[in-house]
């Protein structure tokens, strides 16, 4: 297996046909195990970029290769399954389904990743979840609480548990700390990076908050990555 986690080649994305591309990346690579800080102002196309990376939407042309697999050519169902198994995602907010318990939310993530339909996964998932909860300083009884009864900080930490439950190779995180205060934010960052090290997960962290860049190996500016006009002229 190569050491490249993510490779993008000549990728363009347009909302509607005939319109100018909103996102256009000529070439970009991320290595396995890398911690990457993607910096960009709001409206710079960060969220769209993350949706492209996890395969919820597909580029209009070009290639996105994740762990040697060209995901933009996969059939929809396979792409959804690939995402469930290999990519964890944590957004700014609304990471969890509010009317389900924490445990149900975590189980649901495991459910979509489990294509074999075996039920003995249940225990494995439970063990993994409790380990993760412990690492994130969350009490175990949080599992049986409904999401809407948790604080924002707890919700974001549960979101990480859910994102890591299938031990994904790639973790995409979008402004997870914007709703947290400074001390909670620092604790959150430490725990996040610790878990990524533990599972050897490649991390792409998106934020407009440059002060967070100190936690990362490499930082990339969204506007330098994205060159829509140039791409349209090609």
């Amino acid at each position: 297996m190569s050491l490249t986690a993510l490779k993008i080649e000549n990728m363009n994305y347009t909302y509607f046909k005939k319109e100018a591309a909103v996102l256009s990346i000529a070439e970009w690579q991320v290595q396995c195990g890398e911690r990457l800080f993607l910096h960009g102002d709001s409206g710079s196309g960060k969220t769209t970029f993350l949706h492209l990376l996890c395969g919820i939407i597909v580029p209009s042309n070009g290639r996105i290769v994740l762990f040697d697999l060209e995901i933009n050519t996969l059939p929809n169902r396979k792409r959804d399954l690939f995402r469930a198994k290999n990519i964890g995602v944590v957004f700014q907010k609304f990471n969890l389904i509010p009317y389900l318990t924490v445990a149900k939310n975590i189980e649901l993530a495991a459910f979509f990743a489990n294509d074999s339909g075996f039920n003995n996964e249940h225990l494995v998932v439970k063990n993994r979840a409790s380990t993760l909860l412990e690492n994130l300083n969350l009490p175990l009884d949080v599992l049986n609480k409904q999401v809407m009864h948790l604080s924002t900080g707890q919700q974001q930490r549960v979101a990480i548990v859910r994102a890591l439950i299938n031990q994904p190779k790639l973790l995409l995180v979008d402004e997870p700390t914007s709703a947290l205060d400074a001390s909670a934010r620092d604790a959150f960052m430490d725990q996040l990076l610790y878990l990524c090290d533990l599972y050897n997960t490649t991390l792409i962290f998106v934020s407009h908050d440059l002060s967070l860049s100190k936690y990362f190996d490499r930082q990339v500016n969204m506007s330098s990555l994205n060159s829509p006009r140039q791409a349209v002229s090609i």
């Binding site: 919820i56 929809n76 959804d80 399954l81 995402r83 995602v89 649901l108 993530a109 859910r162």
Partner: peptide, 16 residues
């Protein structure tokens, strides 16, 4: 909408 987004991220297809 947010709920649907979460499900999509988890790997649920539009059909699901």
């Amino acid at each position: 909408q947010a709920e649907i987004a979460v499900l999509r991220v988890l790997g649920a297809g539009p059909f699901t």
